[in-house]
Design a protein around this nucleic acid. Sequence first.
DNA 1: CTATGTGAATTTATTCACAGCA
DNA 2: TGCTGTGAATAAATTCACATAG
Lengths: 207, 207
Amino acid sequence: MRYRKIPDETVRRLPIYLRGLLFSLEQGQVRISSQDLGGFIMIKPWQIRKDFSYFGGFGTRGRGYEITKLIKQIKKILKLDVVRKAALVGVGNLGSAVLAHEDFKTYGFDISAAFDNSPHKIGKKVNNVTIEDTVKLSSLKKRKIDLGIIAVPRKAAQETVDALVKAGIKGILNFSPCFITVPKRVKVITIDFTMDLARLPYYMPKS
Amino acid sequence: MRYRKIPDETVRRLPIYLRGLLFSLEQGQVRISSQDLGGFIMIKPWQIRKDFSYFGGFGTRGRGYEITKLIKQIKKILKLDVVRKAALVGVGNLGSAVLAHEDFKTYGFDISAAFDNSPHKIGKKVNNVTIEDTVKLSSLKKRKIDLGIIAVPRKAAQETVDALVKAGIKGILNFSPCFITVPKRVKVITIDFTMDLARLPYYMPKS
DNA sequence: CTATGTGAATTTATTCACAGCA
DNA sequence: TGCTGTGAATAAATTCACATAG
């Protein structure tokens, strides 16, 4: 296949394929067709095949895809084939939910540090991770942690981000409901669930 | 303007515009140009103008948009101009975070019911909402609640959704990390933050 | 015969460029 | 003059249809 930039939409779907594949592996399957995979995850088979085609031939004509092999390939593309250490900042309800989230492990993430600025929380353990003082964020660089998850109140978001960037973080998952500014080299993905809830009524059949 | 279906991408951006407008209103502004609004929310001015153009003329040439008027119009389009009652199912850490989330109120949502199946939680109050037994989900219809937010473990997701659908719910915000099945008349938006975290490494500059 | 892989066609979304109004 | 509103141009993503390999 000749070179072409991978569409963002394809990258967005890769983790979904991964979820579907892990599920069907759990079901004891060995091979799967784009048809069947698409059935699970509600994506059209030709979309799946087209997405994979950007990376080369993953399947076998007439037989489908070998699940374990495909999982390995997608993980490699997404750079999830090595354990990725992440730091959480803000251990409130949301932060605690993130820390307890089993799923992350499956996808290669290890949230090995947690920070908060509340004296009540510092020193406590949540899910085997000891909560540290936010002022110690600068230690992340030598601890080889380059991924940050922030779940702090809106007002604290930008300063937290600034501290993370200074500590050498290269990617941020932002749960704070606001816009944050970072240097171009840092990738931010914001999850603002109010924005999602707010478009639900538009699609709901009226009264 | 002649009729044309509103692009999904436009609908997805409307809540973002709303956030930007509410922010600039808070700053004491009265009018705003697409240029300035775009500055806040990192969206190009011509995209903003094009999006608004699907609904008709919101602004004044040469002067920009009157903020309060524009807020009102977007809320109306998104059907957020009336208070929307919602029910939360699953009051764990994530559910509690949702219940405590101040933002929802700003966008017209009132989470007036919460359900859990843990006997320890039933009867307790979280954020002024008394937690009810999940078996009472059927009461939602007469309580005029047509929006559900689910934050239950993966295994309980589909049965919870089924109960919500049976109770007449018309829209669901799903935080459970799995695919759920609903009748076509029900709109589901899934927030699966593992999927978002999983594409972050792809975009992070290597080592 | 089955299901992939992929150019081509189509649809959808973004960007441009400028006419038109305050 | 300043900024909106919008057709037209461009770009991106999806869908189709079928040649091709096992």
